[in-house]
Design a protein around this nucleic acid. Structure first.
Length: 557
RNA sequence: GCGCCCGUGGCUCAAAGGAUAGAGCAUCGGACUUCUAAUCCGACGGUUGUGGGUUCGAAUCCCGCCGGGCGCACCA
């Protein structure tokens, strides 16, 4: 619909230029937008305001020239010039009927688009990496936000024409894994009745003790007398499997599903020539002249790329910093042929972004890494701050939050805010199943429609006469449905799935209004068919939006 | 000190540089003998933190302040 309008306008401008009425060297962008105020029509163009200077005429005069070349036909009902020079278009009822029919017929494909209109067949590949929580501890609620955001963004981008891969990077290679293993060992030894001191930098959470208990239950105290290194290796692997499995199941419950899990360990595995990917990546950087030695350490000159200081890759003791394998990991991502890599990180990692982008640029992938920084999640319970402390063990894990609040409300509330905005998540407020909780408002609209459809006197008539839908509340509902395509494009372009929550609420609201104004099932058979068609279409769009958000669409509430 | 993010009705948030800054919650007043009242309709509520600048036009872009969050490792 937008496209049709754009063509009409640019065609009119073209004619005006050809007729010598407009002094422009080229046809400018038509700058279509949807006016906030309904009295300004359905679409508005600001093109005459934008090109006034170049054309040396007043915006209103330009608008009048353009409008004189527009013929009223098809979906355009009327054109007006308003204010300083806006060109306002009002679409005909036929246009809205067309939208309703299209939305219904396209079903879950409604609103699909392509990334580049010039090449509609090409689906650029994007690797979306998110969560990537350490396997040494449970996920916190912040990870929950990235899980919701990442999986929803994946759906949205997929819908907007991207070929999306969702990946979880497992930090399973650093010294934290040894600390993790040692922590389990100590808890195990305690279970064996040994008096051992818990390591200062160990993991104090109760889950460590649980893992130790599981080993004890399965294998008894046989590990008491085994060699330290053998025991540590076994416990590390055992705990790792438990944590990873738990993580996957929690994410699954949160409706977050990864296509691949990338293990940091694989970056340490040598190839046929005895060199591992990290060494290989370091060589690439060295060949580019980006590395230097200082005081026994190998540095990456990230200041060449705007960083405020250079960064160590290989410490003076020969071990890698976290950064080194991470660069190798990103090199691996791009070597897999992705056009774009997106990382979702917490705002507490923003200092890391410059150097990571520097690395990608140095590796020859300038501009192909996009980092989404999400502000953090503050937990509350009845207005009281819940502190998240790993040390005291008093923190609320993502798993506990899901358990208490439920996946739908948790996901929805995590998604309902721009990533630039910190989320204040009140557990008690999230549990309320009333009007103050937007997720239920939207779901209720869906359930209400399902109830209507159950009560329908006969099945949906594909050829229902939609021209009977003339009530203002019906038109408003159709218009809201027509906004869906633009919403998807914008949400994908701005990496902003939170817009879907606003849309879902607006769509639910227009439906509820319509429901109050119009009796759907009545003695008028033709009108009933038309309204059921509208209602079923609305249901489909609601379900689609909710599925993109990863939230369920219940049939009864 | 430096860097990133945020300051919008009492509260939580919207608003590709566009027209009279919009929703929800809360408060107040209305609407169920009819398809789900987890709903609807209405009212109240604003100098967009502040001072400049850019232009036809600024909550939005630029600069300076004020206030809040986060980060500035040979940690991961």
């Amino acid at each position: 619909m937008q496209q049709q309008l754009e063509e009409v306008i640019s065609h009119a401008i073209q004619q005006a230029i050809a007729a010598g009425e407009l002094d422009l060297s080229a046809v400018p962008a038509v700058a279509l937008e949807r006016p906030k105020d309904a009295s300004h029509g359905d679409w508005a163009s600001t093109v005459s305001l934008r090109c006034a200077k170049e054309a040396h005429q007043s915006p209103r005069a330009i608008a009048e020239i353009i409008v004189s070349h527009i013929s009223l036909e098809g979906i355009i009902e009327s054109v007006d010039i308003a204010g300083p020079g806006f060109i306002n278009f009002t679409l005909s009822p036929a246009a809205w009927q067309q939208v309703i029919r299209q939305a219904h017929e396209e079903g879950t494909s409604f609103g699909r688009s392509c990334v580049n209109p010039a090449h509609p067949e090409y689906r650029p590949r994007v690797l979306l990496e998110y969560v990537s929580a350490n396997p040494t501890g449970p996920m916190h609620v912040g990870h929950g936000r990235w899980a919701a955001l990442g999986s929803s963004l994946a759906c949205v981008m997929e819908h907007a024409g991207w070929d999306v891969t969702q990946e979880f990077y497992i930090n399973d290679a650093g010294v934290q894994m040894e600390r993790f293993a040692q922590s389990i060992v100590v808890r195990y030894l305690e279970l064996c009745g040994q008096d051992v001191e818990f390591p200062e930098d160990g993991y104090g959470g109760a889950y460590i003790g649980e893992i130790a208990q599981m080993i004890m239950d399965e294998e008894g105290d046989q590990w008491l007398v085994r060699p330290d290194d053998e025991r540590a290796a076994y416990f590390m692997d055992y705990g790792y499997r438990i944590m990873l499995g738990r993580m996957a199941s929690v994410l699954d419950r949160a409706n977050t599903h990864f296509d691949s899990w990338f293990s940091e360990r694989t970056l340490y595995v040598p190839d046929a020539r005895g060199r591992n990917p990290i060494e290989h990546t370091l060589t690439v950087l060295a060949c580019g002249g980006y590395l230097f030695k200082n005081e026994g350490a190998t540095w990456f000159r990230t200041t060449d790329f705007g960083d405020d200081k250079d960064r160590v890759l290989v410490k003076s003791d020969g071990s890698y910093t976290y950064f080194a394998p991470d660069i190798a990991y990103h090199n691996d991502k791009f070597s897999r042929g992705y056009d774009l890599a997106i990382n979702i990180l917490g705002a507490d990692h923003h200092g890391y972004v410059t150097r990571l982008k520097a690395a990608c640029t140095a590796l020859g992938y300038e501009g192909q890494l996009e980092v989404l920084l999400g502000q953090l999640v503050n937990l509350f319970r009845d207005g009281e701050v819940v502190r998240m402390s790993k040390r005291t063990g008093a923190m609320v894990t993502f798993e506990e939050l899901l358990e208490e609040v439920g996946p739908d409300a948790t996901r929805y509330l995590m998604l309902a805010r721009s990533t630039d905005q910190a989320v204040d998540f009140d557990i008690e407020a999230a549990k309320k199943q009333d009007a103050s909780n937007p997720v239920y408002y939207v779901q209720y609209a869906h359930a209400r429609i399902c109830s209507l459809i159950r009560k329908a006197p006969r099945p949906l008539q594909e050829d229902a006469d939609l021209s009977l839908l003339v009530d203002p509340s019906e038109i408003i509902l159709a218009k809201k449905i027509s906004e869906f395509g633009g919403l998807i494009t914008a949400a994908a372009r701005d990496y902003a799935p939170f817009r879907l929550t606003h849309y879902a609420e607006a769509l639910a609201s227009t439906f509820h209004s319509f429901y109050t104004c119009c009796q759907v099932i009545s003695d008028d058979e033709a009108l009933t068919d038309a309204r059921l068609y509208l209602v079923e279409t609305t249901r489909g769009v609601l379900q689609l939006v909710l599925s993109l958000l990863g939230v369920s669409a219940p049939e009864r509430m």
